[in-house]
């Protein structure tokens, strides 16, 4: 992917064209069906951002007299378009607010793990020696602890809650970035422009930031996209164990976990958030998959 720079010295020193430029060039080639999923993703994001404007009601307002009403029910002049849940809250409003919790957990966790993993990977590749050994052993160590177990233990220490879930996800899932970045950066180290930068005495931070990072960024984006989906699922999994985002804040995972007991009597409590979560993860995975294919020179 990065081996096609002509032999002019000036061009050799400059980093390769950035991912953004290539992405813009590639946007025109995005197949039509993909736009559907991009639109779904954008729709959910918009829904999450504008939740207070879009939601018909307070997602936490309970009405114990209007529990588990079917979609379309109207109770005392209040209509429940997607039904009401086990505490008589409006499922539609909770889904809209739930988009907020579910997506922001995933976004923040992806950012956190991405930053940690990228930094670790770059450091290992650039410094080599004991730093490399330490980072790689740390990665081995993290990989040898099952992620969900580690998360359960950490949540037991920190207590569940939005921030702690982000922390737990961020601290357990960085190894994938570290490995990808490390491998990629290692292959860049012998590149002429990196060697030149080292030769003229550019500080390490600048080499990592200006020469290595831009060239591994595409890979990071691909991993991040696919990780985003996993994070959403992981949060749902934590919710199953009662350790996800805490009530009354709605998250899709938590809604599904509570609603699963009612699938036979009130399917809409878990059904709608389940469908939304499915659509979200599906869209992100398909987009990520497409990006991965694009990034992989073998598959062009």
């Amino acid at each position: 992917m990065n081996a096609s720079v002509p032999g002019v010295l000036e061009q050799e020193i400059r980093p390769l064209p950035r991912f953004g430029a290539r992405f813009r060039a590639g946007a025109a080639a995005v197949p039509g069906s993909l736009w559907v999923f991009i639109a779904i993703l954008a729709g959910f994001a918009l829904m999450a951002l504008c939740a207070p404007l879009v939601a018909p009601r307070d997602p936490t307002a309970q009405n114990l007299l209007a529990r588990m009403k079917a979609p379309g029910s109207v109770i005392r002049g209040v209509s429940y378009l997607l039904g009401s849940d086990e505490l008589g809250r409006d499922v539609l409003s909770r889904i809209i607010y739930g988009a907020r919790a579910s997506m922001s957990v995933a976004v923040l966790a992806v950012c956190l793990s991405g930053v940690i993993g990228t930094a670790a990977g770059l450091l290992a590749a650039y410094c080599r020696g004991w730093v490399e050994a330490a980072v790689m052993r740390l990665v081995d160590m993290m990989l040898s602890i099952p992620a969900l177990l580690f998360a359960v233990i950490t949540v037991a220490v920190l207590g569940p809650g939005f921030i702690n879930v982000v922390l737990v996800l961020g601290l357990t899932r960085w190894t994938r970035y570290a490995r990808v970045v490390y491998g990629q950066a290692l292959s860049l180290m012998p590149q002429p422009y990196v060697r030149y930068a080292r030769f003229v005495g550019a500080p390490g931070l600048s080499i990592m930031g200006r020469h290595l990072l831009p060239n591994v960024f595409g890979q990071i984006v691909v991993v991040a996209t696919l990780e985003f989906g996993s994070m959403v699922l992981f949060e749902a999994g934590l919710s199953f164990l009662g350790l996800g985002v805490q009530p009354p804040t709605p998250s899709w995972g938590a809604m599904m976990n509570v609603g699963r007991h009612y699938l036979d009597t009130a399917w809409w409590i878990a059904g709608f958030p389940g469908f939304c979560l499915f659509l979200l993860v599906l869209s992100v995975n398909i987009i990520g998959d497409y990006l991965r294919d694009r990034m992989d020179p073998r598959l062009r």
Binding site: G229, M256, V281, L282
Partner: peptide, 22 residues
């Protein structure tokens, strides 16, 4: 493949229990 990948395990599990067991 994508469908299998996009469902939380507990949810696909429960759907299976309801369908195939109950």
């Amino acid at each position: 493949v994508f469908t299998g990948q996009s469902m939380p395990t507990f949810f696909s599990g429960i759907l299976m229990i309801l369908l195939f067991a109950v």
